[in-house]
């Protein structure tokens, strides 16, 4: 699966500085498994942003919606009727999902909330290891899978 890490909170807050109403879109596949950008993580980030902006006396209205996969056009359709109500979209998907979202909604700024790090395996809860560089030239058959 694709593994990602959430950007530092200050960086996300800074990205949303000029906006008052933002839709936070989660992805229910890889980044949900690595506990970075699924439905729960969307809710937690929204709550954090809501509190931080209220403390700054500059409230923000955060919408939340998590789709099954942001890298699949048929799931993006669910957002079509929603995005017009928001000034910007914050995506918690991997780079592929963020780009696909930006392509579907060219008139809205699409901002990333996570840093995509690698293709890896799930060793234990919260323990992910990189296992593929996606080099397009697999030699694992000759190297004993190493």
């Amino acid at each position: 699966m694709i593994v990602a890490e959430r950007k530092p909170f200050e960086e996300i807050k800074d990205l949303l500085k000029g906006y008052k109403k933002v839709l936070n879109v989660g992805c229910g596949t890889c980044v949900a498994v690595c506990l970075t950008g699924g439905e729960k993580e969307v809710d937690v980030l929204n709550a954090e942003l809501d509190m931080a902006r209220k403390l700054d006396e500059n409230p923000i209205e955060m919408g939340a919606f998590t789709i099954e996969r942001q890298c699949d056009r048929e799931y993006l359709e669910a957002l079509d009727d929603m995005v017009d109500d928001y000034e910007a979209i914050l995506s918690m998907a991997c780079g592929a999902g963020i780009q696909f979202l930006a392509e579907r909604f060219p008139n809205k700024p699409v901002l990333p909330a996570v840093d995509t790090t690698f293709i890896g395996v799930n060793q234990d809860v919260g323990w992910y290891e990189e296992r593929c560089r996606s080099c397009s030239s697999c030699v694992l058959g000759w190297t004993g899978g190493i």
């Binding site: 729960k40 809710d43 937690v44 709550a47 954090e48 809501d50 509190m51």
Partner: peptide, 11 residues
């Protein structure tokens, strides 16, 4: 108890 239960209380 979930993280959101605690966070929502403060929020």
């Amino acid at each position: 108890i979930d993280v959101m239960h605690l966070l929502r209380a403060i929020q």
